[in-house]
Amino acid sequence: MSQPVVVIENLVKRYKEVLALDHLNLRINEGEIFGLLGPNGSGKTTAINCVLALLSFDKGSVKVFGEEIQPDSYEIKKNIGVVLQNVAVFEELTVFENIDYFCGLYVRDKRLRKQYVSEAIEFVGLNEYTKFYPKKLSGGLLRRLNIACGIAHKPKLIILDEPTVAVDPQSRNRILEGIQNLNAQGATIIYTSHYMEEVEQICGRIAIIDKGRKIAEGTNEELKKMIKADEKIHIDVVGLSEGQLADIRKLSHVYQADYTENRLTIYCNGGKHNLVRILGYLQENEVSFGRVYTELPTLNDVFLEITGKELRD
């Protein structure tokens, strides 16, 4: 088993009456992309800020590279790259100068720094914009600059807090590919987002948090196995009677079926040929149907089943 890079144990953080983190436990191993998924206000950023010692906490412990992190843990911080949720760059400095500034907070050697800055610019694809000032950049390019500022010094641990908020699809793909490349080069990544597709796409292990508590943790597949639904089938049906709906609910492997606004939604749990069996029933009973599609469960379904609400609520 890989060495843990970050270990969070029983972390409790209160903002006056609000409990932002409620006995949170996380373990992020070396070399993995760890996703922290949760709706807005679930405590993701608070957890990240505690890991970075930007926030003090009421209870628990946070260890990074095996040591308790403190505001003055500068030796530990040398190996951490940070891309915060809000873009933190100097409006008065160019793209190159901004990356050079933040890289210079970690790397003193001028020549090495110049090389690192060039590599970071290449990495995020800002070669054509090195002399641009941030206000001349689009939202996507600005996010890329923010990432370059966080990763230029080649840290072992990179924490990205919602790096793709308000980013166009092209930049988003570029950012996600970049994160996977960084991981391939050996960096451990902590990635927070409320976009489940992104987390599913790049993260090896995922923790879902809500109201400051971890409600599930595992790989993408492990999380989906936690819920009953294996398959969700949608069929446009006209004139389905209550009796027919009750018959469908009795079919094998069907554990839930809803019929609203001419749409039949069936949740299946395991089994094979569920769709064929359902369509066969409709044909036998001369129920006319139109469009048919099936989908595998998503992390949203996991969240929905555990919390009773949508991830984006």
Partner: peptide, 10 residues
């Protein structure tokens, strides 16, 4: 934001 980012540095 700049201040927070600086605080994360070495």
């Amino acid at each position: 934001d700049i201040n927070a980012r600086n605080k994360c540095s070495a």
